[in-house]
């Protein structure tokens, strides 16, 4: 029984170590980015007045703030090869990348706050700032589509 536990623990540890291979982060972060893109696109439809589903804007805004808490950690050292559009500069100019990630965190938090406060004008401006933070990082750190 002790032996099984030890073996199980070892297996779990190996599995965990495997899951921690840096390149495994590529799929994970792309899925995370897609989720961020999904909420941004959906929030945009509401902010631009195309649809007005009850309570949905707060849900998208809060999700964006949560998803953007630490996007820097989605780009560990060594996750720069394979099927990725991440540019080398993410690792060679890490300070600038971390700043871009920080700006997205600030912008999404401010957007969530504006939505919570319910001030239409601030919501529009804050949404634009969110978009700016995405575009600024993609401009510097993401390659074109292959």
């Amino acid at each position: 029984m002790h032996k099984t536990a030890v073996i199980a623990a070892a297996l779990i540890a190996t599995a965990a170590a495997q899951a921690e291979e840096p390149e495994n982060y590529i799929k994970y972060r792309q899925a995370m980015m897609s989720a961020i893109g999904g909420h941004t696109g959906a929030a945009g439809q509401i902010v631009r007045g195309k649809v007005s589903p009850e309570g949905a804007l707060a849900m998208h805004a809060n999700a964006l703030a949560t998803l953007n808490t630490d996007i820097g950690s989605l780009f560990p050292e060594g996750s720069d090869f394979g099927e990725t559009r991440a540019k080398e500069e993410i690792w060679s100019d890490r300070a600038a990348f971390d700043k871009a990630a920080g700006d997205a965190k600030t912008a999404t938090a401010a957007f969530a706050a504006a939505v919570a406060a319910g001030d239409e004008e601030k919501i529009g401006a804050a949404y634009r700032d969110v978009g700016e933070s995405c575009k600024t990082c993609h401009k510097q750190f993401r390659q074109k589509k292959n």
Partner: peptide, 16 residues
């Protein structure tokens, strides 16, 4: 704004 219809934002040369 650079926003694509799916919520993604353009990058690289087009962002300029």
């Amino acid at each position: 704004t650079g926003q694509l219809p799916d919520g993604d934002y353009t990058g690289s040369l087009m962002a300029d």
